[in-house]
Amino acid sequence: MGVIIEFKQIGKQYNQKSIITNFNLAIAQGELVTVIGSSGSGKTTLLKMLNGLVKPDHGTISIYQQLLSEQDIITLRRKIGYCIQGSVLFPHMTVAQNISYVLRLEHWKKKEIYRRIDECLEIVQLSEEMKQHYPDQLSGGQQQRVGIARALAADPDIILMDEPFGAVDEITRVELQKALKSIHEKTEKTIIFITHDIREALMLGTKVLVLDKGELQAYETPEQLQNNSNVFVQRLLNSRSD
């Protein structure tokens, strides 16, 4: 599979503190990359660089073999699904309106929108009655599912997820993980998934990206990672048993 995302010599500082240092990485199409690292390791910053919410101080990012800086950022964002912690649904819109948000921005036909809403609800395993509900009428797990559905709606090739399961209970999380895995298997989308849970990273990822203090520590399959001698990786793996 070809490379879909490429970071070249990326650096970023906030208030003279280095967040990302000389970061290089090529991600192949169809990977589910789980990103793990201690807090402040630059995970979210990297993710937001992909949809232009954060601009690197230096270095270049290419998406679909094209420099990010040369693409129209609004068009690009609509082609990249985005799902963040707590899912952050629009509270004044129904489930259906939340899911179809990008579709409406893109002026899809009404019929197509209705069809797509139903498809997305099915993918994230939510019943149709939910459509007219408002976010505050949903459980945490349901909200997360709607968040994922919203990210999937415009059928983007790339989906960015920033700890989407951070705020739900253990049982729901396992269900959501299963759901995500099956979505990935069915759709073969490229998914970048930030987590702070090493078990989740190993269980979900086709590749695991380990970050520490803004530097790449490892980018390997979960199996390869088990044998990595990097001190930070070892410490992470050991934390599993905690």
């Binding site: 937001k48 949809n51 919410l53 609004i74 068009t75 690009l76 964002r77 609509r78 082609k79 985005y82 963040i84 707590g86 952050v88 629009f90 509270p91 948000y101 990008v102 921005l105 919203r150 960015l160």
Partner: peptide, 18 residues
């Protein structure tokens, strides 16, 4: 308005006006 909501909207490809 919650900045997280605004950022979500921005990340989904809304223009400033939208």
């Amino acid at each position: 308005v919650d900045t997280a909501i605004i950022e979500a909207a921005k990340g989904l490809g809304s223009t400033r006006w939208q």
